[in-house]
Design a protein around this nucleic acid. Sequence first.
DNA 1: AGTCAGCGAGTTTTT
DNA 2: CTCGCTGACT
Length: 754
Amino acid sequence: MSDANYALLNKEQKEAVFHTEGPLLILAGAGAGKTRVLAYRTAYLIEEKNVSPWNILMITFTNKAAQEMRDRVVSLVDYGDSVWVATFHSTCVRILRRYIDRLGYDSDFTIYDTDDVRTLIKQVIQELDLDPKMYKERAIAAWISSLKNDMITAEDAKKDAMGNFRAMKEAQIYEAYQKHCRQNNALDFDDLLLLTVQLLQRNEDVLEYYQQRFKYIMIDEYQDTNRVQFEFAALLAKKFGNLCVVGDDDQSIYRFRGADIRNILDFEKTFTGAKVVKLEQNYRSTTSILDAANAVISHNRGRKNKHLWSELGKGDSVGFRQYENGYQEAEEVIEKIRQEVRRGASYNDFAILYRTNAQSRAFEEKCVAMNVPYRLVGGVNFYQRAEIKDLIAYLKTIASGKDDVATARIINVPRRGIGKTTLDKLRMFADANDLSLMEAIEHAKNIPGIGRALPSLQAFSMIIEELRQFDGDIEELIREVIYVTDYESVLEEFEEEKQQTKRENIDEFLSKAHDFMAGWDEMEEPTLSNFLEEVALVADIDDLDEDENRVVLMTIHGAKGLEFPTVFLCGMEEGLFPSYMSINSGDPMDIEEERRLCYVGITRAKRHLYLSCARARTLHGEVNYNRVSRFIDEIPENMLETAGKGGKRTFFDSERGSGFSSGGSDFSWNLPKPQEKKKAPVTSAPASFGKDFTVQKSDGLSYSVGDRVVHQRFGLGTVKEIVDGKKDYEVLVDFDDFGEKRMMAGFAKLEKAN
DNA sequence: AGTCAGCGAGTTTTT
DNA sequence: CTCGCTGACT
């Protein structure tokens, strides 16, 4: 009947699963099976305790984790898909969409990412006539975020700032920023949580409704919750008290983002009578790897005492190498991977982890050069790329027009001769008449002194109006935006290679829109604002597909919650990891956080762990000479396999037998001697890197008027007309099932049908 | 009024 | 090295 087999659980796991009533803290070490415990606990509640799936709330940090959890629960128990599994942020959005009018916002609010926030703050600083050198939007944004995380409002900040000039100015920026957000009907990430808590606090009926609905609440990664998140959970759980949190204080790595480790450390104090279960058996890693992890983390103070152990045997020793520079490090790591693949390993057995995104470049270059397929996670978030943000800004403006940040972004993209002066006038006019920027544009002819810009503004206004009338799905709408705005001309300003990347990104964006439309039956409705919301709340990690046969490159932060057979932890250098910032801050807690990060990195490895660093590293065009990281020193020497007696100096092809291997493993660190190495046979690496895409050169098309062509989405059709545009062809196709469509050849991916 | 070129400054991790 | 801004030019 049930697929949940509770006998598979160990003693502690059972304890956690069967303890359903009252507050419960599950301290789950890395790889101790917490996802399984949460999924089983949910199944148990539904099957054995007759709890309705509808009454269960599970909160995770990423959409990916939520999806995995949902899949797990669905596979275990009937009606598992009725359990509310979501991230903090999307949970809050869902609540706010329904009730935010109680706080004076419209329910079609847009969501600001960090970029939008900075743009707006910069604008506010200007408006307040403050020196941008003194007040940097980056720092102010971080400051406002941390206040919001601690539930401190602008009014509170102003009170606290009394008598302090600078603090007063900063509080004013906060206040003005918040005012603009409200005018633009926009919420930043922190608002999503903060406003939800305020909503619940101020509206007894809403609170009552959700308390009643979520009788059982579970929160994953509890060590990374901040003050608002804590408040949100505590508020919802207050009525029934069934709050189950899972976390590991040793894996708390988001203090910089406001996470408060005390949430987990003080759980028992806050929720009196809480039961605590410790999961210390690790099912992921070998003892060698766990020993190294334990050795490092034991240097931290103020942690809950626990000791991970494993039954998986000793396994290979942890390897360590110091290379001359970052390029060499990258080359040898990639070469090692190639070697292992030749011996039967798969590319997706490997992850290359590093502290900062800047380190990814060397690895990427070597992957390309050495024909190793890879997947880069992180860096600049896909949706933050300029061309994508432009298109999103168009969509936002089309959808509501209240978001001035979006409108201002695209008002002159492509160039329409609407410059700073005109923008300033528009802003003044909008401000004086209580209009949005878009509304001001629509009334441009009433603005005195608008001068030559008037025709351009009217043209812009027409374009937006036209797009608002457009009848079609989101993917088609985006194509239409590109077409009617002549977005091509924006791309053409860049050099060939960059254009290429940008086109790929736009293609990917189109296919995401397509997927969104295709998958809509699972969601409420495929509206534009739903699409924009989804787009705002995705994290890089969310679309990592572990089944893809590629080496994964990402930061250690990104790797939390994941596991790989072989992990390369690179850049183990003082100043890089731990970071320069954390060493210089003077706050020992900063170093402790770095140490926890190191612990997270180490514990991602299942079978093989290779640590490495470089003597010299080029960063922003400057060469730095770094000492070996203190974290390496914290691992007893006998636990590390270094190369030769010179140890840390040598590369892995030094002497025979001095390689990274030990314990009779079939993996070894020995490489071919340099001369053999020159032209290693090309492996079976698929010749695809990064994203898949088809290139459609604009010189010459494979089809002509009258030809039958196939479109990815619209199927078969007949080419009616081809117009030679500036750089791309504009093609008119009469599709059998969809009628006539006009499209840019570069984006349409049309193929001649036979 | 808008655009372009040259100069200076800044760079941890991200829902 | 790349982004963003200031100041000169069209």
